[in-house]
């Protein structure tokens, strides 16, 4: 028997969808996140090889704080550990992103459950797309999935259709 990753219902091998909760049993998720129309998303791509300032160069390391502001206006601070997954909370599937964009219309805005990750290396913040269905955009440019890209003050991020403002202080 195979167990539904979402609701735990047992099915005979070879079954493709859970009869109880409707998820695709191979992934425990939907068959696919519906791609947004191409026209809804910016079309230029970021240069994947652009590097951040080399850590340690320039000004002496100082304590910085990253604040991101989604359209709802609520301020979200990067957790102290300096790393955060942005996405959409899905308790039934055990996905608890540090920054949940559900209140910002994440589901309809095409935000994946695990959409992007922000982390800090030395004094530099990086944004990394986690292979999301609808992409992560930095100042209107699409990021190559799984390739961290440096984040600066006043940068604008777009996850699917949801835009968020970045400020580094």
């Amino acid at each position: 028997m195979i167990e539904c990753p979402s609701c735990g219902h047992l099915h005979r091998p070879g079954t493709l969808f859970c009869s109880e909760c409707g998820v695709y049993l191979l992934t425990g998720g939907p068959l696919r996140t519906e791609p947004l129309p191409e026209s809804d998303l910016p079309s230029t791509r970021a240069d994947p090889w652009e590097s951040g300032e080399k850590a340690g160069t320039g000004e002496a390391q100082r304590e910085t704080m990253l604040i991101i502001v989604p359209p709802s206006g609520r301020q979200l601070n990067l957790p102290a550990e300096g790393e955060a997954v942005i996405g959409r909370l899905d308790a039934t599937r055990g996905v608890f992103p540090n920054i949940d964009l559900t209140p910002e219309g994440g589901l309809e805005g095409g935000v994946s459950r695990r959409h992007a990750r922000i982390h800090k290396q030395k004094a530099q913040y990086f944004i990394e797309d986690l292979g999301s269905a609808n992409g992560t955009f930095l100042n209107g440019q699409r990021l190559t999935p799984y390739l961290p890209h440096p984040l600066h003050d006043n940068d604008e991020l777009q996850l699917g259709r949801v835009r968020i403002q970045v400020s580094v202080r």
């Binding site: 109880e20 909760c21 409707g22 998820v23 939907p30 068959l31 996140t33 519906e34 309809e108």
Partner: peptide
Amino acid sequence: ETMATRLLDMGEH
């Protein structure tokens, strides 16, 4: 409710 979630996943808003 579960069905509605699946429909959203499919883009059937």
